[in-house]
Design a protein around this nucleic acid. Structure first.
Length: 183
DNA sequence: CGAATTTGACCAGCGC
DNA sequence: GCGCTGGTCAAATTCG
């Protein structure tokens, strides 16, 4: 069939662990003066916003790991059954200090594999977003050097809003909208 | 009982 | 060409 169009070069929103400590500076969401609340809830807003924040973070040497090096997220070897070989899907990795392997990033994930990898004591786990139309994946792995550090690698962009964010913010949003309509 | 996870098999790319 | 490796599949198993 036809070749698929390459996805836009945007970065997916980073996971925001609830309790673990960020080794890299967390990106704090900030409201721009003329922020539209509906667009805030959409993933486009988040992704564009994150992109700006990443650009800023990178230039200011606040180390968002582009790809986790040591425990070897090497070059692209998108294996599997012949899919996505030279992937142009945006990927990025970051590290968190956490007892938990699974960080609560607001999206729902289904595990589809686990592999032990070379030069690493700990296995790498593979997850896919459970949303029907979303093909975002992530890999989770602990560092050999420091088992308290979890490396999470995201691949792709969510094409749907974050369920948990929606859940949490919906009532609040309604209130805000009610209030803003009154003035 | 349906959904999620586990795990061994399979496949493709890369280096030698 | 062959072996090694990483990523995915899918049947079996576990969980809620």
């Amino acid at each position: 069939m036809e070749e698929q169009e390459a996805p836009p070069p945007l970065l997916p929103p980073p996971a925001r662990p609830t309790s673990p400590t960020y080794l890299f500076a967390p990106i704090q969401p900030t409201l721009l003066p003329n922020t539209n609340l509906e667009s805030l809830m959409s993933c486009n807003y988040n992704q564009n916003h994150m992109l700006e924040q990443y650009a800023a973070a990178e230039t200011s040497d606040q180390n968002i790991a582009k790809f986790a090096d040591e425990d070897n997220i090497k070059d692209k070897r998108i294996g599997g059954r012949g899919r996505n070989r030279k992937s142009t899907i945006p990927r990025f990795a970051f590290q968190t200090k956490s007892e938990e392997d699974i960080l609560d990033d607001g999206y729902r994930w289904r595990k589809y594999g686990q592999k032990s990898v070379k030069n690493s004591k700990f296995p790498r786990s593979y997850y896919r977003c459970t949303h029907l139309t979303c093909s975002v994946k992530k890999q989770v792995q602990r560092l050999t050097k420091d088992r308290s550090i979890v490396v999470t690698t995201y691949e792709g962009i969510h094409n749907h809003p974050c369920e948990k964010l929606m859940e949490t913010l919906s009532p609040l949003l309604k209130q805000i909208q009610l209030l803003t309509n009154r003035f």
